[in-house]
Amino acid sequence: MIRLRDITRYYTNGFVKTFVLRGVRLDVAEGEFLTIMGPSGAGKSTLLHILGMLDATSEGEYYFHDIPVHELTERRRTELHQQNIGFVFQSYHLIDDLTVYENLETPLLYKKVKAAERKSLVADMLDRFGIVAKKDLFPAQLSGGQQQLVAVARAMIIHPRLILADEPTGNLNSKQGEEIMALFRELNRAGTTIIQVTHSEKNAAYSHRIIHLCDGWVTGHQLAASG
């Protein structure tokens, strides 16, 4: 599904190049649950952003289902991202001015889904994640766990083939964290590819495979306990 070849990412600051990723080579198969681990500043988030097409590579090749993402125009890339990828963040990143319902609806609006279909899709999601009662509340009125639940629901609503999660349980207590991870496992079993960034061994245990990043290099591959 995903093929990264010699991905390098650096930022130029004056005459100094700061490398974040160096020659990353990675293949991810459809249906996999992958964890990226590593110390702070190892380049985990940057890798995730590149995978999510939010950030461009400096060098190297990125194939998504054999489509050369590194060669696409901004517009095509947005399209590809819109159709296939859902994001979940550590700090949820819901839109404060929108209700739960409207937050879920937003990606569908950008995909230009018809109103009737939007309604049924949002209703499905609310139902599936057990947050029907919360649909008219604003993010600030929800607990962290509930907000993350909404964020996952929002990521899932476009039926993405890939979910990218950046420390999804980092702001949650352990019980809420377990719930979210269980949800990920469930989604993965239903066929969604998931790539997560985490510091937590416990969360990593939910995945099939772990890669380790350090100073921008891939330093190790490891099969996880569940795999």
């Binding site: 939010l54 819109q82 937003t106 950008y110």
Partner: peptide, 16 residues
Amino acid sequence: AKEIGIKKVVGSSHGA
């Protein structure tokens, strides 16, 4: 800015 960022992440194009 945060809101704009989220909208881009959930699939909004620059034009939109």
